[in-house]
Amino acid sequence: MGLLDKEFSDGNILIANVEDLLNWARLSSVWQLGFGLACCAIEMMATSMSHYDFDRFGVIPRNTPRQADAIIISGTVTLKMATRIKRLYEQMPDPKYIISMGSCSNCGGPYWEHGYHVLKGIDRVIPVDVYVPGCPPRPEALLEGLMKLQDKIRNESLRTKSA
């Protein structure tokens, strides 16, 4: 349901409904908070590099939560860090999205039993939109996760907020 595949009927005028236009704008520029946690963050960085090129989907790392649309929880969330993540999440303006990347942030990962210091799933602290499984997930998997998030944004409605 792209916007631009519609025929231009008259000069420069494009007819679309506001919802589609807004969603299209949002999903095409998901700016992520520049934030990495453990081994998964290495894979997230690889995704940003030229080979996988996160930027072609409109994902640019931002240095402050005030300018970020999404946060990728990429790695082991310790209890100490969880309090900080919550603070960062609260500082992000709406609409905001969360991708949980890797087993650690999904459910505690390898630390699920003996990790006295690990939060067993970031969804105990903040609401997650997309879970990407893997330890670590390959960049392809993270890209797939991003596209899932884009699908979700594409179907959002202005009247009811889903996230």
Binding site: L79, G108, W112, Y116, L119, K120
Partner: peptide, 14 residues
């Protein structure tokens, strides 16, 4: 050592 049930309102065990 015994892990606490909660830390700052976050559940600690799996």
């Amino acid at each position: 050592y015994k892990n606490p049930e909660f830390y700052q309102g976050m559940k600690v065990p799996y």
